[in-house]
Design a protein around this nucleic acid. Structure first.
Length: 795
DNA sequence: ATTCAATGTCATCAA
DNA sequence: GCTTGATGACATTGA
């Protein structure tokens, strides 16, 4: 009698198990089970109750604080923005949840200890407060093969326990074993391995998997190191070749070819393209990314360039008349034998087992290169309509192809996607539309070892999406495209505010604007140090106003100065470097050409400068002569000062003092000389100061723009995640209801949902727990009230 | 005549 | 104490 009773119970449990294990995909349409919480509920690996993993992971201060620009000059200012951004992460997808069954505060010790308890172990302590498990107090489902119960005398007290450990506690009959086997086979047919039911076995498998993963990680690290070495070698070869075939102009920094062989020369754009391609190859050796794919990609993306592959794998735009550019040596063909290092895809990769965290490093370099390419091509795809989802999608797919290891898109292409899965394309499109580009994503499922037993979880769909949330933050370079007008206004307003703040900042704002900024400037002129004009220029600055050259309207004076430039040329050793044509050459040159020449003679135009502004700067080719500098010259002449203004101004202290001692000067003369010197110095200082301020303003505005863009993206992504969370909750409710409705007590009556609830531990065990004690913590009185019921399943 | 951007100058502080 | 650089404030200049 009892045996029959337990057999029935076992059947019911197994059926419920089957329901739980196999129906999820269809019930959830496959798209909701990708959340870690759901995963862990299903797999029972870790605590499923950790709230909102997603947001902790992607919206925590880690990701955002890492984004803080090191060049940040005003923490308060940006902290406001960051608070604003971070506030977006404060949403809880499970608030006001009406599902009480799945979010059990599971104590990890519960399943094992409980399941391992012997039938005699009636004194097993209450381990799980929420589940209020008593050995004979509740029904444990799953993870078991054999029955282990402890029947109390009174069934009305609900004293039936179904604890099913993997250790055989009692001898099952042949009949039972057959039944169990049948059920197993059923589950295995449905994709459930035996290990699912065996805690020990499962943990052993997990351990094995961890060890395996560890090995793979180490292997990957070695590969990464090797790749880095090869990159360095490549650079060295490049440099060596360059130095062998070219000589660098010490003054301009330009590379001048030693030979007239023009075939060796290549436009800078070509170099950049080649670089990008080489880098793409280099960065993704193990992803079967061929050069042809890169070419295809570039051909699709770059309409302006008709690319073809040359013998040495370089890319040239032959059909376009290349603008006269300063030749830049092309790197020799690099030994690409290393490309064979791992042309095979990593086994784990396609198996969706794990993705190494080292992707981050690799993806940075490629992302930089990619952004270089984007900048180089002037973001041609930015001109595409934002709402052109199809084209953008294609674009992003293409873009991601060179980076298949990092790109989830390509990876997804190899993965089984549940037929009724989440709308992948919509996510892709959305994410693409968000970013314009699909940046290489750090795969997310590295932390989620797939047991591979239950479902073909298409984790990457979600990880792609979620990882984009984080990585996009670092690739907001294309942000302006998607910025709403109102945000632009806001940005502008706040930019003005920033300026005001800067002005109010006092003299403490003397912040080096050097090349510390990782932000890629659209124009390299801003990438240089603002002091470059002072330290490295050879004169000819736009600011060299008092040149007193022939063109000067003060030329009529009797003064001709040897020191024609005292603008930015502080180096007294090269006074003859002054060139009135410097301005001409600089300003008449197309601005784009200066990109490859990190040698700026000019007062750099702000990167975002409009043509009108450039024109303004160009207008000032002829230095204006404002202020009393000529007056100084006149007055110096009147006082018969034996020095020129520029001699006075430019000379270093020692020389200046020597000058003064050489001549016997009157006090008036000395005073004038000192004034001239002070004014001259201060004039340059003021120029530098203004230049720095302008740079600072521009930088801040760019940062602001990027932050705005990031904020917008986060808002959109939050909305999407909210929506998905709502959908998931609804699905859970539905699933819960179905399961609960299918349960019957020993009398065949359904359970009252007001009195009972389903709860699941982290180990996957499902408990039917009376509600009134479900929240009690070890209260023996409450525990006594627990009605142990068996689950019946009539479906 | 007015406005505005660019530039120069002065005063002040800090190194 | 002097020099120099930085910078806010104001003045000047020219379009």
């Amino acid at each position: 009698m009892i045996k029959q009773y337990f057999t029935d119970g076992l059947i019911q449990i197994a059926i419920i198990l089957s329901l739980l294990r196999t129906d999820l995909n269809s019930i959830l349409n496959g798209n909701l089970i990708q959340y870690p919480e759901v995963q862990e509920i299903l797999l029972g690996q870790t605590a499923a109750y950790i709230p909102s993993n997603i947001h902790n992971q992607f919206y925590s201060s880690n990701s955002l604080s890492n984004f803080v620009h090191p060049k940040n000059f005003d923490n308060d200012f940006n902290s406001v923005l960051f608070r604003d951004l971070q506030s977006l992460s404060r949403f809880a997808p499970f608030e006001n949840t009406d599902i009480s069954a799945f979010l059990v505060d599971a104590v990890s010790t519960l399943p094992s200890s409980f399941a391992a308890s012997t039938p005699q172990d009636n004194t097993t302590p209450n381990i799980n407060s929420s589940a209020s498990v008593e050995n004979n107090g509740s029904v444990e489902l799953a993870n078991g093969v054999t029955e282990q119960f402890n029947v109390t005398d009174d069934d009305t007290v609900g004293a039936t326990a179904l604890s099913i450990p993997n250790e055989v506690a009692s001898d099952p009959s042949e009949e039972d074993l057959d039944l169990i086997d049948v059920l197993w086979r059923q589950d295995i047919d449905l994709g459930v391995g035996k290990d699912v039911f065996d805690v020990k076995l499962r943990r052993e498998l997990e351990r094995d998997r961890e060890i395996e993963l560890q090995k793979k990680r180490e292997k990957q690290k070695e590969l990464e190191i090797l790749r880095q070495k090869l990159q360095d070698e490549k650079k060295n070869q490049e440099q060596l070749w360059r130095t062998n075939h070219f000589t660098q102009d010490g003054e301009t920094g330009e590379w001048v070819p030693l030979t007239q062989d023009n075939n060796l020369l290549q436009a800078p754009e070509d170099i950049a393209l080649t670089d990008v391609l080489n880098d793409a190859q280099l960065s993704h050796l193990d992803e079967n990314f061929s050069l042809q794919e890169a070419l295809d990609f570039l051909n699709q993306e770059v309409g302006n360039y008709s690319l073809f592959e040359t013998n040495n794998n370089s890319i040239l735009p032959p059909q376009e008349p290349v603008a006269p550019v300063i030749p830049v040596p092309q790197a020799p063909p690099i030994d690409t034998s290393y490309l064979n290092i791992s042309t095979q895809p990593e086994p784990y990769y396609n198996q969706n087992q794990v993705v190494q965290p080292q992707n981050v490093e690799r993806h940075e370099s490629f992302e930089d290169r990619w952004q270089d390419l984007v900048t180089l091509l002037e973001l041609t795809h930015e001109s595409q309509p934002v709402d052109d989802a199809t084209s953008m999608n294609i674009s992003s797919m293409n873009i991601s192809s060179p980076d298949s290891n990092d790109s989830v898109l390509l990876q997804n292409a190899t993965l089984p996607v549940p037929p009724s899965d989440i709308n992948l394309t919509s996510i892709i499109q959305t994410a693409t539309n968000e970013s314009g580009l699909m940046p290489p994503s750090q795969d997310y499922n590295a932390s989620i070892p797939n047991t591979g037993s239950l479902t073909n979880l298409d984790w990457n769909t979600e990880s792609m999406f979620l990882s984009n949330l984080s990585t996009n933050i670092n690739s907001t370079e294309v942000g302006d495209l998607f910025m709403a007008d109102e945000d632009l206004d806001i940005a502008f307003t706040e930019g003005l505010e920033t300026i005001r703040m800067l002005d109010d900042g006092g003299s403490d704002s003397a912040i080096s604007m050097g090349s510390a900024s990782p932000i890629q400037e659209p124009n390299d002129s801003c990438g240089m140090s603002p002091y470059d004009g002072v330290e490295g220029a050879t004169g000819g600055s736009d600011y060299d106003s008092p040149t007193f050259s022939k063109s000067s309207k003060y030329d009529g004076d009797e003064y001709h100065f040897n020191f024609n430039s005292y603008g930015y040329s502080r180096s007294e050793s090269s006074p003859s470097n002054f060139s009135t044509s410097s301005n001409d050459t600089e300003f008449s040159r197309p601005s784009g050409d200066s990109q490859h020449i990190h040698h700026n003679h000019t007062y750099p135009a702000p990167p975002g400068m409009q043509p009108k502004e450039v024109k303004k700067y160009m207008k000032s080719e002829k230095p204006k002569h404002k202020g009393p500098a000529p007056k100084d010259a006149k007055r110096a002449a009147e006082l018969k000062v034996p020095f020129t203004v520029e001699e006075i101004t430019e000379s270093p202290v020692e020389e200046f003092n020597e000058m003064l001692t050489k001549y016997k000067l009157e006090d008036a003369q000395l005073q004038l000389i000192r004034d001239i010197r002070r004014r001259g110095k201060n004039k340059v200082a003021a120029q530098n100061c203004r230049k720095r301020k302008m740079d600072l303003v521009m930088t801040v505005e760019e940062e602001l723009t990027q932050l705005k863009h990031t904020r917008d993206k986060l808002i959109n992504e939050r909305q999407m995640i909210d929506k998905q969370a709502r959908e998931m909750k609804a699905k859970f409710s539905q699933m819960y209801q179905e399961i609960f409705d299918s349960l019957r007590d020993e009398h065949g009556h359904p359970y009252d949902p007001n009195e009972y609830s389903l709860q699941q531990s982290s180990d996957g065990d499902v408990f039917l727990v009376p509600r009134n004690v479900s929240c009690a913590s070890g209260n023996s009185e409450d525990q006594a009230k627990i009605n142990k019921k068996r689950k019946n399943h009539k479906k």
